[in-house]
Simulated scan of single mutants.
Amino acid sequence: MIRVGIVDDDALVRAGLRTILSSANDIAVVGEADDGAGVPELVRRERPDVIVMDIRMPRVDGIEATRLLGADSGVRVLVLTTFQLDEHVFAAIEAGASGFLLKDTPPRELIEAVRVVAGGDAMLSPSHTRALIERFADSGRDARRAEARALLESLSPRELEIAVAVAEGLSNAEVGARLFCSEATVKTHLTRVFAKLGDTNRVRLALLVRDAQD
């Protein structure tokens, strides 16, 4: 079962999300919070695999709550937003979110998004990944290029191939098909990549690869 926590300041939204997600036979909604301030306690008490997190909340917003969780928590965050790729989404991705959904996402797509994120993939299409990359492409380019290349030099040739494929927005299964290896092998290599880079976020990996190639 995929254990899911819901964080949104609107009780009706939380109820709707719970109803949708609970309809899937492989998802269990294990807890809720009405503000980002409640996320640490929710995680400590219920140990969710995924948190579906609203970005805009009155006290501690979803961006800060995601940042406070950190990569070491092992919890993947799927942020909810009203607008595609606004500045809040960029900030949430930088803070460590694994992807984002619009609040009017159809139920079936919401359920599938939770499965994708729980499985270790990012819930961003290639077009969204490109938009994120372009958003950060123009600031501090030279310094970012040098830093990115230095970090990527720690990867083996195979790990670098996988990092580049992930940067193109491919899922683990798609990377495996391209490189003629199993999805499990891709996951093993990615674990090593993230360990060497000190991160566990596929989108930030994509940004790093783009910076190195720029």
Rank of each mutant, 00 (worst) to 15 (best):
A150R: 15
E112Q: 15
G119T: 05
R145V: 14
S127R: 12
R115M: 08
V114F: 03
V116N: 02
L132Y: 08
A148S: 11
G140S: 14
F136N: 05
E161R: 10
D142F: 10
S139K: 13
G120D: 07
F136M: 05
A131T: 12
G120N: 07
R130T: 12
R141Y: 06
M123A: 09
D138S: 14
I133C: 03
R149N: 07
S154T: 15
V114T: 04
V116E: 05
L152C: 05
V117N: 00
G120Q: 07
R141W: 06
L124Y: 02
A137W: 06
E161K: 11
L151N: 08
A150T: 15
E168W: 02
L152D: 03
A122D: 00
D142P: 05
S139L: 13
V116A: 07
R141N: 06
S127D: 14
H128M: 12
S156W: 04
A150Q: 12
V164M: 09
R158Y: 07
S156Y: 07
E161P: 02
E159K: 06
S139Y: 13
A118H: 01
A150G: 08
P157Y: 10
I162D: 01
R130F: 07
V116S: 04
R145A: 12
R135T: 09
A167H: 01
A122E: 00
T129L: 13
R115F: 01
G119F: 02
A113Y: 00
P126D: 04
R141L: 11
D138T: 15
V166G: 02
E147T: 14
A113F: 01
P157A: 11
D138Y: 11
R130G: 05
F136H: 12
R144G: 04
A148Y: 03
S171C: 07
R144W: 04
P157R: 11
E112I: 06
A131I: 06
R145N: 09
M123Y: 14
V116H: 03
S127M: 11
L155P: 00
A167V: 09
A150L: 12
L155T: 07
A148E: 00
L151D: 08
G140N: 15
R149V: 06
I133Y: 02
A122H: 03
S127E: 14
R115T: 04
D121F: 01
T129G: 04
D121L: 07
A165I: 04
S125I: 08
A113M: 05
A131Y: 01
A148C: 10
R135W: 09
A113P: 02
A122G: 03
L132M: 12
M123H: 15
E168T: 11
